[in-house]
Design a binder for these strands. Sequence first.
DNA 1: AGCCAGGGTCTGC
DNA 2: GCAGACCATGGC
Length: 283
Amino acid sequence: MSFNYQINSDGNNLHLNISKAELNLADTLDCGQCFRWVKNEDETLTGIVFDRILTVGQTDSTITFYDTTTSDFEDLWKSYFDLDTDYASIKQSLSFDETIRKSYEYAGGIRILKQQNFEALCSFIISQNNNIPRIKGSIDKLCRKFGNKITQEHYSFPTSEVLSSVTKEDLQGLSLGYRDDYIIDCASKIKSGEIELESITKMDIQDARIALRTIKGVGPKVAECALLFGFYRVEAFPIDTWIKKALNYFYKDGFPEQAKEYAGIAQQYIFHYMRTCVDAPVI
DNA sequence: AGCCAGGGTCTGC
DNA sequence: GCAGACCATGGC
């Protein structure tokens, strides 16, 4: 069940009545789950999603989708921002755990975006042993070089078809480092049919993990990120350096069984808390 | 200079 | 099955 919301259009822009507790755009779009959103000088945010360009702004009571029709919202953005999911009740079900509770009290307006699976998979292959600003830079250059031109400054994420035919040399200058081989392997396995993203969406999560990890450069952590952010498997639990610190510090007896159904969402709250909150333990 | 960043592979035991 | 070297890159 989703929360009740009202939308109204002023002709060009669409206004959604929603609080920052339900959806906080700044936190959601800059918490390390996506890499193609930028903040504008007027504090609005612009992202490239599904071959579309979207600019959004937020006040305490309203999110504005610029140049957006009601049908765009219903067909694309409602799902992308996961507005059909009741996060209040998910948070309630996770409230037994003090660390998770502290994390969502710090930034509980984060939602898991429903991103394209190929984009998420490639993005998190690039993310390994890397930092977020560099990841964003590499992805931006990858899109400018191999994506479809939307405007002069905006390019879509490349298709697996296009990336399956690029060479290592083509990928020079994108700051991918040794990850260039991994991107090529990923796209090649999709083209050959060895990996079918469509069938992975329908697989049991354990089978999906095994399938994804046949791609070079996809280990446990990247597979979990791809599953959580690209396939909306909210039980997936990526363990990166920050979560490792949290596990060592808060969860010496293991992550609670009771949180497993929404472990990915809890993980994202904790990740953002550990990385950005001044009150988080420095380890 | 050395360490870290949303890690994984490969080798050697 | 597991530890350790190594992997490319840029910011601090």
